[in-house]
Design a protein around this nucleic acid. Structure first.
Length: 596
DNA sequence: GTCGTGAACGACATATACTATGTAGTATA
């Protein structure tokens, strides 16, 4: 029953969608109830199949009716109410809702008054100019629907954009807008600022007295394909590859309120606005003001607004209405990661896919004021890997460089081992022990069973030379799904063997994921390492993304080896890396004794 | 649909921009 949760989620989401069509009401409370039930289920870690109806109903947002539907689904594979809705609203009708600009109310009227039951019907009605005969519709509605329909057919389903694609695009656009004369500030907002793995659109906020040249700069950007809407306050465009960009321009004194609003999440905003109302205040994207009289209480910075609502500042990565507002009130918000003082997963051009020389990578680490740097090129088991001689030559190079560096930066000669399908590792134990630092990662055999995948990694953890597991799920956001893993077993083995787990900051990876890291919270024996997995010197900055990912999960900094508090100056990290060397030489058992 | 209060019923997520039509739908966080 590994996928029962996914089945239930899909059932609830389909119920919500079909009920929206059924009721023709964008504000339906029934739809909202299904959606909120789905969110509660999504947050559940336990296997739903094991829960009784009574236990299900104890979950917030799930009552008698939904509990029964879940049981019905798990027992029979079907839900009568869903089947009924499916008959009433066939896929050809539901598909119509994907047309931009066509909502549930218009859809209901199109069906009732013009008999539109499919995209083909809609095309016919548009061609015969029947739509403009309906009250509330005119020639422009016809024209726009026809355009939206053509686009939908050209593009198919619009997928969400992976952060690895969206962030570089958004960064370029922000830079372009920042250069427009009169612009005093340009910032990323929305789900990108919250560091979501995939994003629906790019949100950008600009401060300028005159919005006109800013809007003009956006609509004339080379990547822009078409303009969805353009006004004095906001403009929306779509790029050639189908990513929507929303731009807002505000006055400087409104920046905080606007950034807060535009960053979201939507649910976080709604909860904040409710909180404002409870205090006799109202919050919109321009200001927090008094309900009576409208006097502005705060608007210039996000900090001001949170303070006026009786809250400390909540970092953008936590704004999901997943308990962060309550935690802020109680003073139990997770603390941010400290300054990163070292990296333990870095490639040079010794790896087939590496681009920078050892000297370039070391120079970049020095520029970042790192205390420790582990060079970890690929072992021979992967396509980009190298044999013993190349690695031994690299070791000589590193030792010589270390002598020149003195104690400014501690260099570790490491290696990224490949974990075979049965947990086998490159070289032999003797050779592996010769490294200062071994991390081991999965690079192939992605389709084994959950038990086999878990076992191969646990086997690698038990190797005396392995100190860290790299990108444990091996996923690529927007590309390859994660391998199946039993995280309970994985975490227990990591604790038992003292093996650290990587938080890989490479944007296609972000592995472990936020979801997996959340499951690790509370396991105080687990240790994590933020890494860049850099393949060129400039990519060392990706460890910052790893930090954002860890913060998003609410991971305590003390469980993260290389995110020590700023006043520590890397001393703890040096101890840990020295310990790593000890592990490589002495093996696990000896170190456990020394640590205890 | 769920939930809290009181045992059946009302409340339930806010506030705004843009567009096309002439008040309301759709969309955004």
């Amino acid at each position: 029953m590994a996928d029962s949760k996914q089945d239930v989620l899909e059932m609830l989401q389909e119920l919500a969608e079909l009920t929206r069509v059924d009721e023709g009401d964008p504000q339906s409370f029934r739809v909202r109830a299904y959606e909120s039930a789905a969110e509660s289920i999504a947050a559940q870690a336990t296997d739903l199949g094991r829960l009784t109806a009574a236990e299900l109903q104890r979950i917030d947002g799930i009552g008698k009716s939904t509990a029964e539907k879940i049981h019905e689904l798990l027992a029979t594979g079907k839900v009568a109410r869903l089947e009924e809705l499916r008959r009433k609203h066939p896929p050809s009708v539901v598909e119509l809702l994907r047309i931009q600009g066509l909502g549930p109310k218009a859809l209901k009227r199109l069906r009732a008054e013009l008999g539109v039951e499919s995209i083909a019907d809609l095309r016919r009605v548009l061609a015969e100019h029947q739509l403009r005969t309906l009250k509330g519709f005119g020639p422009r509605s016809e024209e726009n629907l026809a355009l939206a329909l053509a686009r939908l057919e050209a593009e198919g389903a619009v997928a969400r954009t992976p952060i690895s694609v969206a962030l570089p695009l958004a960064t370029r656009l922000v830079a372009r807008l920042a250069e427009v004369p009169g612009v005093t500030r340009a910032e990323l907002a929305g789900s990108l600022r919250r560091f979501a793995e995939t994003i629906g659109d790019v949100d950008i906020l600009v401060v300028a007295a005159d919005p006109e040249p800013v809007m003009e700069a956006l609509v004339t950007a080379p990547a822009v394909d078409r303009v969805l809407g353009r006004g004095a306050a906001k403009t929306s465009v779509v790029t050639r590859r189908g990513t929507q960009i929303d731009l807002r321009v505000v006055a400087a004194h409104q920046f905080g309120a606007a950034w807060l609003y535009f960053t979201g999440s939507k649910r976080h905003n709604i909860t904040l606005r409710q909180r404002a109302l409870a205090r006799g205040l109202t919050l919109n994207e321009y200001a927090l003001s008094e309900l009576e009289g409208g006097r502005v209480v705060a608007s210039e910075t996000e900090e001001d607004i949170y303070r006026a609502l009786g809250l400390p500042f909540i970092p953008a990565v936590l704004r999901e209405d997943a308990g962060e507002i309550e935690a802020a009130e109680a003073g139990t918000l997770p603390r941010p990661m400290g300054t990163i003082r070292g990296d333990f997963h870095v490639h040079t051009d010794v790896s087939g896919d590496g681009r920078s020389t050892l000297a370039e990578v070391v120079a970049a680490a020095l520029a970042r004021d790192y205390r420790v740097l582990a060079i970890t090129d690929h072992a021979e088991g992967t396509l980009s890997g190298v044999g013993r001689e190349a690695l031994l030559a690299q070791r000589e190079q590193i030792r010589a460089l270390q002598a020149a560096l003195g104690d400014r930066l501690r260099l570790l000669h490491g290696v990224e081992l490949n974990i075979g399908p049965a947990g086998e590792l490159d070289y032999d134990l003797e050779f592996r022990r010769g490294f200062d630092f071994c991390l081991a990662s999965v690079h192939d055999h992605f389709n084994l069973t959950r038990e086999a995948q878990t076992q191969r990694i646990v086997t690698a953890m038990r190797d005396p030379a392995v100190r860290m597991i790299g990108h444990p799920s091996a996923r690529m956001i927007g590309g390859r799904p994660p391998i199946e893993l039993d995280y309970e077993v994985l975490f227990a083995a990591a604790e038992e063997t003292g093996t650290a787990l990587e938080v890989n900051g490479g944007l296609p990876r972000l592995d472990l994921s936020v979801e997996a890291l959340r499951r690790a919270r509370g396991r105080t024996g687990l240790r994590f390492v933020l890494t860049s997995d850099a393949h060129q010197a400039s990519e060392l900055e990706r460890s910052r993304y790893a930090a954002l990912n860890a913060e998003r999960a609410g991971l305590p900094p003390e469980q993260v080896v290389n995110a020590a508090p700023t006043d520590d100056d890397g001393a703890a990290l040096l101890r840990w890396s020295t310990q790593a060397e000890a592990v490589a030489v002495a093996g696990r058992a000896g170190v456990r004794e020394r640590l205890s």
